[in-house]
Design a protein around this nucleic acid. Structure first.
Lengths: 206, 206
DNA sequence: CTGTGTGAAGGCTTTCACAGCC
DNA sequence: GGCTGTGAAAGCCTTCACACAG
């Protein structure tokens, strides 16, 4: 409810909480305190409580949260977020690996197709999905109503490919390329730059 | 200098600026304005200027920044950040892929060894480095003064493995596992949760 | 006149302090 | 007594407005 009011960072943490609550539920635990949940999520208890109150209040004072109902509530807030078909563009090293990566499927995201300028070159053998040429992109996206794309092309071609994705109707891009993409304001981009993550970590090493 | 004052987010963006400036330098461009640089980095010009003034002032008013000297300055701030040996733990799907991923080596991070409970199982054939058993971890880390680790084990074993890493003397962890790691305060962790990134994106899709 | 440097203002998150309920 | 819910305070980061230099 009142989706538009929830801060970006809170939305991100809700995903975290949801995963933890799912595990608790699987383990037949039926009550959890904000302190315990917060610890598992790496945040402060007050932060977690504040986050939850953005979309309602379902804790019991003096007791904590009912795992089952909390799970249902979180699922409903994030509901639209899952079970989206996803395409991947750029079947090089990293791209091929992500196609095989079971972490996506496990959480409800299916990579339904991959595209590459050289459809033959996917690494790692036996792929469950086919690698299509780039000129099939637009028709595929519209036929399958795909809104999400994973971009794993080199930085040199990333912007060109992005323009094609936007043109094809893609609304959100998970960008692994090394450049910052220029996109219209109706398209969302999340960047994952692995080299920068490492560089950033090493900055904080003594 | 005065490294300790630079905000976390600024440090992260410095890495971004640095990569862009490197490219400009390679392309023989010798002057750049904060507006142009900021656009390439996806931030506002004032933000970029503020970020840069945290460690000095080297622009020329009315002109912009000298690419060459800016590159040197950024390199010196991030200097400690690069050319660190890195180990990877968990040679499954994602782990094997990251071992092959050339994006790390390109930017000065060399994965010097990988570890797994089953050293034989690395996917994708011909690896340049060997997969060692977990009991070699501690001695390897101390012998090679490794401070950085990439963690690509399943969530179920992530905390146990993390404890071993901390025990071995690792100071920073790039965590791809699905749980939030509990570490002592002298250890830094950056989390990369690919499924959450996708979920987060799809939340913002109309 | 162009484009940087920067104190001050503004906005967004986090944290505190404590009221409220079981 | 224990733990959630929340307005207010604090903290952090971004943006503005404009002084200043070339």
């Amino acid at each position: 409810m009142a989706k538009f009011v929830i801060p970006r960072k809170t939305v991100y943490r809700l995903s975290l909480y949801f995963r933890i609550v799912e595990r608790l539920f699987q383990n037949r635990i039926d009550t959890v305190s904000s302190a315990a949940l917060a610890k598992a999520a790496g945040v402060k208890p007050t932060q977690l409580r504040k986050d939850l109150t953005y979309f309602g209040q379902f804790g019991t004072r003096g007791l904590g949260y009912k795992v089952e109902s909390l799970e249902r509530q979180l699922a409903s807030v994030l509901r639209t977020a899952r079970f989206q078909p996803v395409i991947l563009v750029g079947a090089g090293n990293l791209g091929s690996a992500l196609i095989h990566y079971d972490g996506f499927a496990k959480e409800g995201f299916e990579i339904v197709a991959a595209f590459d300028i050289r459809p033959g070159r996917a690494k790692g053998g036996h792929l469950k999905i086919s690698i299509l040429p780039m000129d099939r992109l637009k028709s595929f996206v519209s036929e399958h109503s795909v809104k999400l794309a994973i971009l794993t092309v080199p930085g040199t071609s990333a912007q060109v490919v992005t323009n094609a994705l936007v043109e094809a109707g893609i609304q959100a891009i998970l960008n692994f390329s090394t450049i910052i993409l220029q996109v219209p304001s109706n398209v969302v981009v999340n960047n994952v730059n692995l080299a920068i993550e490492l560089e950033n970590l090493s900055y904080f090493i003594t």
